[in-house]
Amino acid sequence: MKIKQSFWIAFSFLIIVVLLVLQFKTRVPLLREVGPTSSREAITYLRTLNEKKDSLLKEIEKLNFKILELNEVSMRKEDFEKSLNQEISKWEALLGLKGITGAGLEISITPMKNQVLSVETFIDLVNDLWGGGALAISINKSRIGWNSYLYQSGNQLSISGRLVDAPFLVEAIGPTEVLESVLRIPGGFEQKMLIQGVELKISIKNNMIISAGGIQ
């Protein structure tokens, strides 16, 4: 009888021990994760966390400021890049490396029968047009670039080795009014052509296309 009584008590003890161990297994990892076990510890823990939060907020503020600074710098850089690109495209156009569209002048030059126009006439014309602010010039669809060369080849004109014949059609894109006035100036190109008896027609076109072809 006594053994039976002790058995029940020991059995209850066994159940309690099993429950205690299971509880231990559940709680220990939790305590390791959370840290504080009492309200006092929790308050300290909370304060530490608050301090950490404050310092992190300050850090975030600093980093935000840095981001703003870097954005400003990159914007400045972007502006610089933009103006540089504009400059490059302007020079590409002037050098004849890039096709150009826009308003300009169309100059039709028709010499008399058997009349030979000297190469200097065209060199003067091209120089006048450059002086007037032309962005692109072509003669009979041959683009005049930074290294183009003109010379006389018998009765024909050679533009960087390509022979062109009369009638000549010179196209120039740029400020039309200035270009026109440069040509029509007293003693200028128009007058020279009239004296030589060449038929000259200057007309303003709003939409002109001069394709690339500067490099020979």
Partner: peptide, 12 residues
């Protein structure tokens, strides 16, 4: 009791 303690700890 000792037996119950050992079994309980091991089982747990």
């Amino acid at each position: 009791f000792v037996f119950a303690l050992v079994i309980g700890v091991v089982a747990g």
